[in-house]
Nucleic acid binder design. Structure first.
Lengths: 358, 358
DNA sequence: TATCGCTATGAAAGCGCTTTCATTGGATTT
DNA sequence: AAATCCAATGAAAGCGCTTTCATAGCGATA
């Protein structure tokens, strides 16, 4: 539209006012100015006022790097996540950032897209750049990353799952899988399938599968790998997953999904194929995204309080930074939310077994 | 589950190895060590090797704050967005971060939740902490924020929309609204409604409304405020928005939505109310989220390349940092994606007008 | 062989803060 | 009135790097 206008402005280096300048203007020493700006120490209210005024007049902004170098604290906390493209992580980070900001901390963010090497680089980079504390997701990391993490001179918290080596705030992912499968089992299903995201560098996905398997095993039902479709964490992935399961010799009457995104994909694919949910197919997800309650039929799922997790991580890290003692392991509660995507199997879908005489 | 185990580990202050230590171990001066680590300057390959080895042996990580203080560069870029809870921003940030990381830059992220004061605080904080460049979203900012932004000694780019005062990479939001309404108009609709997000501190939302109005005005159709439902940017908001419009004396046969999230909410509400889309109601969104193409019926929408925007912002800022000249305004292309949520109005929905003799 | 010009390295001066330690002077105590 | 204590402030030493500026070699040039 408008003709491109070529900017030529060089990257200027206008010297910003220093604390020194503020101090001079206020007629105090840099030491006092520093204390006044920090607000904490014993400085006459009147002096504080004078310094504040001088700072405002000069448009003074404290220089982070200098503060960091002198104090050893950067007021910055790092978060390393798989990706922001999944609502769950985005939501947790949002909550984390909001909590941190309220306490004067900044958020340094890195996403690694499930690439272990990239994660290692991010950890190294953050540790170097100097964050006061760090959050990572899950327990799958390169040995090198583990070393960096456990030997870091700062508080580090593992989120989303657990590992003895680090403070952790997470969910019982296996239990999530268990609850989902158990629910379907209780409804009477016997022919299962699962749609999972890729399990590489993703202990949560593996644990959820393991949990579902445990529930099924209790009912003497096997869940071979052939009945677990692995797909990208997208709606399209969910659709493809269901398509794959439907191609099985004995297609499932119930499918457990690694998360809600996949579950919604499954629902959409089912609808498109004319399968009625839950009459022809029961679907359970994990996460409880906003859309889960809005889609038709509303999705039965395992609720994971992800935003709360973000808040807890912030609180934990901040407390550790204050030197407070904290539990090393905090398990966030999860629960089954029954909605209308799951129901008892219809007769033709039920495998007649001697035990099932109903 | 497992009994809470109370960690007592104090926040240790293990002195990390310094460049000085690396230099000694390599038998060179700190100056040479610095140059060797930077890779750039004229240092014998053999010396570089020696320094690298020493650094590795000691587990040396360059100290960011010190580097920043000495060099005046933090290798960090700031991004201030409304919220990560909307997929569009999350996606753009994800792309931005990935591009930055590839070039050795870190991302400092802040969300302000559409609160102007919080945004101002974030800008101040980032400028202080020292970012090498900054991205903000939209053109709605407090005067104070504008001052900070335009007088910042670093490259700043405004994203998502445009403003003469700053380099900008954005979309023609008005055109997006225009295209959406135009499409519906061309289909023959005459009774319009709009579901928009809140317009406060959100020039994008206002521009989209303005654009839609312009299109309608060309057809001599008025879009009074009463026909524009304002709702939160959520599915529930979209549902409520449609509910409101349906309560009108002359309910719309076509609705333009401020974004896809609202549009999907509208679709869901329509389905629940038994309205057929597009026979009874045509719906158009803006964004082209993944779900737009998967939901039933697939959503007609205006595609905005948000991930590409993130990438462009990274590229722009990095180029400016290198001192390269760049266009001050980059407009990302947008286009209508026709799907099945929009169609011609049915007869009973069409307002008989002298001009409309068909 | 004396001079010049490089190249690889070192010495040292900060970058802009925070923080310990010392100092001052007034209020309090005896 | 002398001794004591404390509150408020200042002096100065870094924090761990980068970056001039200077210097020592050493091959090339005249």
């Amino acid at each position: 539209m408008a003709g491109a206008d070529w900017g030529r402005r060089a990257v200027r280096r206008i010297p910003r006012p220093t604390l020194q300048a503020v101090a001079e203007r206020a007629g105090v020493s840099p030491a006092t100015a520093s204390r006044a700006m920090a607000g904490s120490a014993a400085v006459l209210p009147e002096t504080v006022e004078r310094v504040r005024a001088a700072a405002a007049a000069l448009g003074y902004l404290p220089g982070g790097p200098a503060q960091a170098l002198a104090s050893g604290r950067t007021q910055t906390i790092g978060a390393i996540i798989p990706t922001l493209d999944h609502a769950i992580f985005a939501r947790a980070v949002q909550a984390l950032q909001t909590s941190l900001a309220r306490h004067g901390y900044q958020l340094l963010l890195a996403a690694h897209d499930y690439a272990a090497a990239q994660e290692a680089a991010a950890v190294r980079s953050m540790l170097g750049r100097g964050v006061d504390a760090l959050m990572v997701v899950g327990a799958d990391h390169l040995p090198e990353t583990w070393t960096l993490l456990t030997e870091a001179p700062i508080p580090v918290v593992l989120s989303w799952s657990f590992d003895e080596r680090l403070d952790a705030i997470g969910f019982d992912n296996a239990q999530a899988g268990y609850l989902a499968a158990r629910h379907l089992l209780d409804l009477g299903h016997r022919r299962f399938g699962m749609v999972s995201g890729f399990t590489e560098a993703n202990d949560r996905a593996r644990l959820r599968i393991a949990g579902a398997r445990r529930a099924l095993a209790e009912a003497r039902i096997d869940l071979p790998n052939a009945r677990i479709a692995q797909a990208p964490f997208t709606l399209a992935g969910g659709r493809a997953g269901l398509a794959q399961l439907l191609g099985l010799a004995e297609p499932p009457s119930a499918v457990v999904c690694g998360n809600d995104l996949l579950a919604v994909g499954v629902l959409l694919e089912a609808e498109q194929r004319g399968l009625r949910v839950p009459q022809d197919l029961s679907v359970v997800g994990i996460d409880n995204l906003e859309i889960a309650s809005h889609i038709a039929p509303p999705l039965t799922t395992i609720h994971l309080p992800t935003a709360e997790l973000g808040r807890q991580v912030a609180e934990h890290l901040l407390a550790r930074l204050r030197g407070e003692a904290r539990p090393r392991r905090i398990e966030m509660p999860i629960e089954l939310v029954e909605r209308r995507s799951s129901g008892p199997p219809t007769v033709e879908n039920t495998v007649r077994s001697p035990i099932q005489a109903a």
